[in-house]
Simulated assay, not measured.
Amino acid sequence: MPNHTAGPAAPTTEEAYADAPDDEVEMLALMNLSRANHNTPPVHGREWMLRYAAQQDRAALRRPAPPAGSVPIRPGARPPRDPADFANQLRELDRRDGTGRGPLGPDAPEWDGEVGPLGYVRQEYLAWRSAQLSDLAAVGEAMRAMAEVTDDNVRSGQAAGRGEPWPREQLLDLARRRVAAYVRAVDFGIDAVADQRRAEAELRELEAADGNARP
């Protein structure tokens, strides 16, 4: 049920995004979430919508205002979407599903006032990110998974150097575990972007070689 109870003011942008990942990390996390949902926009979950709305807000905050009297965009170019559009989409979703986490619900009058709907995104992002980082067991598991696949990758290289390469099935399993570990790390905001992309490329090569080797 929507929460109409008055509460504290929305967090500032500095408070809301203090622990937000770098843009490259967050954009890859969004791509990972999209792939997990089979790239079908209607099934983007609430987390994707929240994180995307927050990313668009952060991008707009960094965008310099055009000089007075200048043409803001080149003729024929499509202007960037207003981040408030995504904020209102999040409000509508939370209004429908009752999924808001912050002290002020999506229908609170504050979001139609001076702070605007982006205040709702900042409130909800701070609540979500704080909960994500406070799950120490999950964060620790992500870190251990990265360490394990790194160690296993070193061992497989050492075995190959001794002329004792691991079996193809074992290498494929390791490659898949590496991708999964880096995807999880990126989700928590750990800068494993290059690691994930390298692991995905190596997995594709192994899967292609495995397919060519089968009768």
Rank of each mutant, 00 (worst) to 15 (best):
Leu126Asp: 03
Leu126Pro: 11
Leu126Tyr: 02
Leu126Ser: 08
Leu126His: 07
Leu126Cys: 08
Leu126Ile: 06
Ala127Thr: 08
Ala127Asn: 04
Trp128Gly: 08
Arg129Ala: 04
Arg129Pro: 12
Ser130Gln: 11
Ser130Thr: 15
Ser130Ile: 08
Ser130Asn: 11
Ser130His: 10
Ser130Trp: 01
Ala131Thr: 13
Ala131Phe: 06
Ala131Met: 07
Gln132Cys: 11
Gln132Phe: 04
Leu133Gly: 07
Ser134Asn: 11
Ser134Lys: 13
Ser134Arg: 13
Ser134Trp: 00
Asp135Ser: 13
Asp135Lys: 12
Asp135Asn: 14
Asp135Phe: 10
Leu136His: 12
Ala137His: 13
Ala137Gln: 12
Ala137Pro: 14
Ala138Val: 11
Ala138Pro: 13
Ala138Trp: 02
Ala138Tyr: 06
Ala138Phe: 02
Val139Leu: 06
Val139Arg: 09
Gly140Trp: 02
Gly140Val: 07
Gly140Glu: 05
Glu141Trp: 09
Glu141Val: 14
Glu141Ala: 15
Ala142Trp: 00
Ala142Met: 02
Met143Val: 15
Met143Gln: 14
Met143His: 14
Arg144Thr: 05
Arg144Ser: 06
Arg144Asp: 05
Arg144Phe: 02
Ala145Trp: 03
Ala145Gly: 07
Ala145Glu: 06
Ala145Val: 05
Met146Gly: 06
Met146Pro: 12
Ala147Pro: 11
Ala147Gly: 09
Glu148Cys: 08
Glu148Ala: 09
Val149Gly: 04
Thr150Leu: 09
Asp151His: 12
Asp151Met: 14
Asp152Ala: 13
Asn153Lys: 12
Asn153Ser: 15
Asn153Leu: 12
Asn153Cys: 09
Arg155Leu: 13
Arg155Gln: 14
Ser156Tyr: 03
Ser156Leu: 06
Ser156Asp: 05
Gly157Asn: 14
Gly157Val: 07
Gln158Pro: 15
Gln158Arg: 15
Gln158Asn: 14
Gln158Phe: 13
Ala159Ser: 11
Gly161Cys: 10
Gly161Trp: 06
Gly161Lys: 14
Gly161His: 13
Gly163Glu: 06
Glu164Trp: 09
Pro165Val: 04
Pro165Gly: 04
Pro165Asp: 01
Pro165Lys: 03
Trp166Thr: 14
Trp166Met: 13
Trp166Phe: 10
Trp166Lys: 15
Pro167Ala: 03
Pro167Cys: 01
Arg168Val: 01
Arg168Met: 05
Arg168Asp: 00
Glu169Asn: 08
Gln170Pro: 04
Leu171Gly: 07
Leu171Thr: 03
Leu172Val: 01
Leu172Trp: 00
Asp173Ile: 05
Asp173Thr: 11
Asp173Ser: 08
Leu174Val: 04
Leu174Asp: 01
Leu174Cys: 03
Ala175Ser: 03
Arg176Ser: 01
Arg176Tyr: 00
Arg177Val: 02
Arg177Phe: 00
Arg177Asp: 01
Arg178Cys: 06
Arg178Tyr: 00
Val179Trp: 00
Ala180Trp: 01
Ala180Met: 03
Ala181Asp: 04
Ala181Asn: 09
Ala181Leu: 05
